[in-house]
Amino acid sequence: MKQEFTITVYTENQVGLLNRIAIIFSRRKINIESLNVSPSEAEGIHRFTIIINEYEEVVRKLCRQIEKQVEVLKAYFNTNDEIVWQELALYKVPTDIIAEKVKVERLLREYGARAVAIRKDYTVFETTGHREEIEKLIKALEPYGLIEFVRSARVAIIKTSSGFHEKLKEFDEEQPGEDLMENEFLNQQDKVFSM
């Protein structure tokens, strides 16, 4: 079954790498639902967060192809229950309507939205959360003249990850430690191996 996967990629900071990674998806006609590139916890190392809807087997192959790129250190993939994630959204609404309608104020409070800019003609609200929550607020605001809306890419933290600092040290070594060459079959031999 196809499901949502979050792919986390640790890379060097290199011009053109975004394209090199993006074409691994487009070559297979896979749509990237969300993409975020930012610094990571390790200095000088960038972190890609990519969301796609795919079969696990395909995602596994994609990650191997990504990891194969010279400037990529590591690629992980996780289902939604293995990560903590957030998206951020901005909503621009006419100030006069908000000022008049008490209901809107209540609505915004209910969704935990926060005003980030208040002008005479418009107000910009911000909210963070999962996609469904963000989308619910759009629906709720639509009748009150939502002028503009934008949602950020997903950012995600892997629940079981202990970060990249230690790993990075091993990458600096000429002979990286064994766990770098993670093998999903290791210690699960009964699952894949029978004689």
Partner: peptide, 20 residues
Amino acid sequence: CEHIRSYRPKPIIRKEYIQQ
């Protein structure tokens, strides 16, 4: 050049797989 941090030309050989 003899080493690039993000590039591992040879994967590590796993003894258990050789044995299997």
